[in-house]
Amino acid sequence: MTADMPEKASLRRHLLAARAQLTSHDVESAAALLARGAWELAELAEPTGTDADTRAGAGAASRTVAAYVSVGREPGTRALLDVLRARGVRVLLPVLLPDNDLDWAAYEGADGLAKAGRGLLEPTGPRLGPEAVCAADVVLLPGLAVDERGMRLGRGGGSYDRVLARLARAGADPALVVLLYANEVVARVPEEPHDHPVHAVVTPEGVIRFVP
């Protein structure tokens, strides 16, 4: 992976500084709104009808979701993880490998999480391999910003660039969704050839979808 663009590094610093100003109350309030907005997405909604119905189109509810456990002042995902699991959705969570790639394991509840490096929380269950993400109907991507085209700005580690490349190689086409604070939907994110647009962003103020 090439060195980070100076424009990306500058935008990351600005957005992380804004997150650092958030209080615990701000984070908790936003997390509740984010969870409500996310679980009302058609792709994540309560499954209804037959299995054929749920796989028939853009409104189909997911059976497997690749997600992540929010930490610190990241937009909160934990309530959403529990709702999805309670609905019978298979939730996969990442396990960071030494080379920054991601393995995956099933989410079995908060008691099945353990502290890992870099302040992360990771599942303790059996590892399913990096290719397990290719079975996901929806992938929730962490990020710092999304622009009006759906281009996402990550933290710069490259882990999710590898995930997106792996999905493309496998011919997988899950819905790509990012959870953000409202101020993190920006006019333009600096773009590189490996960057990939997402399908939707959820903020405490609502859902924004992007036309492919």
Rank of each mutant, 00 (worst) to 15 (best):
K8W: 02
T2H: 11
E7V: 07
G59L: 12
P174M: 09
V177D: 09
V178M: 10
A38P: 08
L141G: 03
L33N: 06
L153N: 06
A35W: 11
T50K: 06
D111A: 15
L128P: 03
P197S: 10
F210G: 10
G59S: 09
A32N: 09
P142H: 02
L41Q: 12
A61Y: 03
L22V: 07
M5L: 15
T77H: 12
I208C: 09
L97K: 04
V89W: 07
P98L: 06
L92Y: 00
H199S: 15
A132G: 03
Q21F: 02
H194D: 04
P130Q: 15
A67V: 10
H199K: 07
R166D: 01
G57L: 06
A165Y: 05
R55E: 12
D53P: 00
V189C: 00
E205W: 06
G117D: 12
D4R: 15
G156V: 09
L180T: 13
K115Y: 02
L120V: 01
D51H: 08
V139R: 10
G109Q: 01
H14P: 01
R85Q: 13
A45P: 05
Y181G: 11
G143S: 11
R85G: 06
T54N: 13
A20L: 00
P142L: 01
A56T: 09
V69H: 01
H14I: 00
A61V: 02
A170Y: 07
A86E: 15
E191M: 13
P94C: 09
V27W: 13
H194K: 00
G59K: 07
E122R: 00
G88E: 11
G157Y: 02
A60G: 15
D103Y: 05
E74T: 07
L121K: 05
G125N: 08
D137I: 06
P6W: 00
G125T: 14
T203Q: 07
A56S: 15
D147Y: 01
S159I: 02
L121H: 13
L44W: 11
K8P: 03
A175W: 09
E131K: 14
G171W: 07
T2V: 14
L44K: 12
V69D: 04
E43Q: 14
